[in-house]
Design a protein around this nucleic acid. Structure first.
Lengths: 343, 343
DNA sequence: CTGAAAGCGCTTACAG
DNA sequence: CTGAAAGCGCTTACAG
């Protein structure tokens, strides 16, 4: 099987180079280079002549040469845990929409929620000397931290905030969001409130802390109602967790799921097994993903500002990449409680 | 705001280079280069010495320099229409899983189903001289085709097949799949079968052709039952299409949706409005996405082999990239009819 | 198994 | 507004 370094190619590619364009125009390569980069100090007539030659020859600049000569890259490495959670797809889209008008391309890395994989990706992406890095959260290896530090690459963190010095981040308080939705359930008169979770990343665990905060304050925290499943979340898992919870704790009167896919599965399982929602048990989710407003009953959840997070983080990184002082180190974008009929 | 070409950096980066490592080891740079690439002809003792120096200095190879010197790249450009459809996320994961063990990284481009955007992405990615390209389907601009041709970059097409000479592809027959599911509905005794679609890409239109094939053969094709919505699919759209169709054509007895998210929305709308499925109307989807088996009733659909497509296409590209003759030009992976209780 | 020379295709910094 | 020289950090091809 081929490997990235396997195949010998002719020393001199048959590709069209800057020199070919220059020769075609009868000017020096450097002038072509300037014309191509839209330098202000090139005669308009020459500009047009160069463009014509480029089109005619089908010249495509070699970015490796450009990057090497200029010590500048148009890549931004974006490391996210998953593409399976719609949340991160939307985050990513917002990032790319903000970055690409400025000529930056995203190198997307999926860590699968694993610091070791993240470290490997970072090592590999850093070797491309990206102009900047976007990371999800703060849970990473010491080695990754050191590489980042040593590389001196501008970096912004997504989804959570930190008050550590020199750390840039755009996010919201996962813990507050967890507390808020549980307080809503308490206000509705629920007392036996369960937390059902999968994909136990640090943010899911912070939501758990918020859940505990609210229940302890109300004097009805019961650790037996915390259902933490390792592995990925899914609609099917949510259904199983729903049935488990009701079987083992028949008095449960509300379930807060760490992600909407689980909660959607619970709603479908309730329908299937004839458990009335919210009468017998209230259901709440997290993130307000696609379809949650279409469920039966529509799902109460927390809407998280992932598009805005992507946009703002990209803007912040853009400032750092041009070595401008970022206006703020930490942006808290908050969240919205969305009360629908499942609670 | 910063642009990719804005910020001046010191001519000589303060980064650790090959030369630094060589000096630290007391050997020549070329030897370090060989040791790093795992060349067979380096003394084991030296190998270890180099590795130690690399670790100690925190050396990270500069891929731009490597790419320029070797005229070889470890990038593969992967152009897909969307990350919102779970289908393409799974396709992408399979591609990356197959490519990364061989040292290739994916440059992911999202075309938003737009040949103009695809052309722009291709232009930009080709300037990185990728080792290979993976494209979705065959619907692209003349200019894109020319660029690809001229670049001489190995290329494999995903999702559909073509018998054009020199074209590599891995997919299945969208038309046959459409025909198959409609034949199933016919066999169940349905006669007034609608096709409801969104995101009218070429594959959705080929499914439509399959739908027509089956209905014409059965003598019950009615163009009035083709509901083609421009714009993205969603659970909410599926629900609206369901209500529309039943209001305008009360005799409709089955609906084939071009994608499972639409069909899931239909199932939820049926539940909401009290329309019995499949008694009053059968529902079928396409792709067998997450949650379809959890619906009420579970959704009849077509399971498409996207992970296998990604894996096989990557394998084929790997062969082409090492200039090996690919075993086959065209791989048809078929599909599975999945009959559940909605039909 | 190791090295000296040349070059990949650009851009920088300096002139004019 | 345009150009000659040097160099970015690596690898290739050729020796020994």
């Amino acid at each position: 099987m081929a490997d990235a370094s396997d195949r010998p190619r002719p020393r001199s590619s048959s590709q069209v180079t800057l020199d070919d364009v220059a020769r075609a125009c009868g000017v020096s390569p450097i002038t072509v280079s300037r014309a191509l980069r839209g330098a202000r100090n090139v005669a308009p007539e020459l500009q047009a002549r160069v463009q014509a030659a480029v089109d005619q020859l089908g010249y495509v600049p070699n970015v490796a040469a450009r990057a090497l000569a200029s010590a500048r890259s148009s890549h931004v490495a974006v490391l996210i845990p998953s593409l399976t959670n719609q949340l991160f797809v939307e985050l990513l889209e917002a990032v790319q929409d903000a970055l690409s008008p400025h000529g930056f391309q995203s190198l997307i890395g999926v860590t699968h929620y694993d610091p070791a994989q993240e470290e490997a990706l970072l090592r590999s992406y850093l070797s491309q000397r990206p102009a900047g890095v976007l990371l999800t959260g703060f849970d990473r290896s010491e080695a990754a931290l050191r590489m980042l530090e040593r590389s001196n690459t501008p970096c912004v963190h997504l989804m959570e905030n930190s008050d550590a010095p020199g750390v840039y981040s755009v996010g919201f308080s996962q813990r507050d969001a967890g507390r808020t939705i549980v307080e809503h359930l308490l206000q509705r008169g629920r007392r036996r409130i369960a937390y059902a979770a999968g994909q136990l990343d640090p943010r899911v665990m912070m939501r758990l802390e918020g859940y505990r905060d609210a229940l302890r304050a109300a004097g009805c925290h019961d650790p037996a109602l915390e259902l933490l499943a390792p592995g990925p979340t899914s609609i099917a898992l949510g259904g199983r967790q729903f049935e488990d919870l009701l079987a083992r704790h028949p008095d449960v009167d509300a379930i807060f799921y760490c992600n909407d896919d689980l909660a959607q599965g619970a709603l479908l399982a309730a329908l299937r097994t004839g458990v009335p929602v919210p009468q017998r048990v209230a259901i709440a989710g997290f993130n307000d993903l696609g379809g949650s407003d279409q469920m039966l009953p529509p799902l109460t959840t927390v809407r998280t500002p992932r598009r805005e997070i992507g946009r703002r983080a990209a803007t912040m990184l853009l400032a750092l990449m041009r070595a401008a002082p970022a206006p703020e180190r930490t942006v808290d974008l908050g969240f919205d409680l969305v009360v629908r009929r499942s609670s």
